[in-house]
Amino acid sequence: MLAPVTHMLALTHIRRRRLLPFPGQVMVRLGQSVKPADVIAQVARPGSHLIVDVRRMLRLPPSVKMDQVLQVHQGDKVEKDMPLGEYEGMFTRIARAPEDGTVVMIQGGRVVLETAPEILHVFAEMSGEVTEIIPERGAWVETDGALLQGVWGNDHTISALLMTRMSSPDETLDVNRLDVSMRGGILAVGHCSNADVLRIATEIPLRGLILGSMTADLVPVAEKLTMPILVLEGFGKIPVNPLAYKILTSSDQREISLLAHRWTPYAANRPEVVIPLNAAAEYPNDTAQFRPGQMVRVNTGKNAGRCGKLSQIRPGVRVFPSGLTAQAADLQMEDGTEICLPVANLDVLE
């Protein structure tokens, strides 16, 4: 049976694709070492526009051909007040550029100016090496290190020093525990349930926040902040899973990449933490079938966030306390207890 896989790996080989949404210019070369802030590829995308109706501004009769009037061509850069078109009648009439810009299109008697072109950059987002160029679109970047995958992110990324402040996996971050010594770092803590904590964290400023869990009422607050926030386990009071806890507590003061991508099933990027390490490693398994002996995590219900070893997938189905019938798995938990849960409520940690 196909199992969802979440990586909580102390050392693995990480390969990520960095792509433009449409063709542009690749800025790196094969074999190049890159830092998180390095630009992999870039493209100019349509910015703000002004439509200047030269024919109407000059009050031209239909008999006048525009190519006799227009002073600019597609691709020309123009400055504010520069003539776009000029008509010499009894009095010379001039249509001027209302702002600095580039002529991106001339259509009939209208000149379309792009006033604020935007350059879209795709960044490496993690330290590594460019191992494959995707012409006009981007590249594959690879590195070795620890990899922690989360379940929610507010769609921002950053790289900075990790500061782990956890004496237990479910420790709650409160306002009193934030101080200026954390300035510029990425803080990893167990849980947050206070919107003020998030706001003060941005004022210090922290560069990012890794949370085991947070309460769902913080979602709108976190989505408005530009500071990257990544949630490892989910919503409610869910402790950081033991694998992630071990990796985070042993990586204090390391340079990490916090990629708090928004997670949708159809997006290639998951919210994740990459901690580059100077050691060679194997590729992880992104796919798996459930099998006994695997480390699995419970993803919903009152046991959410708990981890254990999969003892067996029971044949047939069983009835759960909800009254629902479903395929069941027996788990041997970290604390020695045994529980039976729907297979659908598990993901494989590896």
């Binding site: 769902a216 989910g234 919903t300 219900g301 729907p342």
Partner: peptide, 20 residues
């Protein structure tokens, strides 16, 4: 609210308890 958001992260999951 927390449980609804958690369910939205794991849409294939099933209610195990009566409360869920």
């Amino acid at each position: 609210r927390d449980r609804i958001f958690q369910k939205s992260l794991h849409p294939a999951s099933l209610p195990e308890s009566a409360e869920d």
